Amino acid sequence: MTQAAAAPDYRALLSLDDRGFIVLGAGDGIGAQISHGLAQCGARVFCVDIVEDKARAIAEAVGGHHCAADVTSAAGVAKVLKAAQVQLGVIHGVVDVIGVARIKPIAEFADEEFEWQLGIVLRHALYVLRGASQVMPQGGPITFVGSMSGNRAVANQLVYGTSKAALHHLVRGAAVELGPKGIRVNAVAPGFIRTPRLLELLDKAQWEEIDRHVPIGRAATPEEIAATLLFMSSDLAAHVNGVVMPVDGGVSVTAALPDLEFGKVARTGTA
Rank of each mutant, 00 (worst) to 15 (best):
A174P: 12
L202Y: 10
V90S: 13
R194L: 04
H65Q: 12
F109V: 15
T221N: 00
A165R: 03
A68I: 14
S133L: 09
L230Q: 02
A155I: 07
Y160P: 06
L122T: 08
V100R: 01
A132I: 01
G242H: 10
K82I: 13
I106A: 11
A110Q: 15
L122A: 04
R123M: 00
A166H: 05
G119A: 08
T162D: 09
A166N: 01
N186T: 06
N186V: 04
S163K: 02
N151G: 11
S15K: 15
A165P: 09
A68M: 11
V240Y: 05
S147D: 09
V176A: 00
V214F: 06
F144G: 03
G63S: 13
L88G: 00
E261R: 13
L129N: 08
T143Q: 06
T270Q: 14
A26E: 07
T195I: 02
R130Q: 15
D211W: 08
P222Y: 01
H169K: 12
G139T: 10
V251T: 10
I142G: 04
P141Q: 00
A256E: 12
L257C: 03
F262S: 01
A226Q: 00
K104I: 03
I225T: 03
G25L: 12
D28P: 05
V128M: 06
F192T: 04
A219C: 06
H66E: 13
A43W: 14
Q157W: 04
E52R: 15
L16W: 02
D17E: 15
R44P: 12
L158C: 11
A220E: 05
D53R: 15
L118Q: 07
V86M: 09
G140C: 06
H169P: 02
G242C: 07
A256N: 14
I91M: 07
A107V: 12
A132L: 02
Y10N: 13
H36F: 15
E200P: 02
V159C: 03
G161H: 02
A266H: 05
W207Q: 02
V121F: 10
L14V: 08
A205K: 14
E261I: 00
M148D: 01
A7E: 15
A74C: 10
L129A: 04
I58N: 12
E223S: 07
K104C: 04
V240C: 08
V23R: 11
T268E: 05
A187Y: 01
S149Q: 06
G63T: 14
I225P: 02
A166F: 04
A39M: 11
D53S: 15
G25N: 12
F262L: 09
R19A: 11
V62P: 11
V171H: 03
D18Q: 14
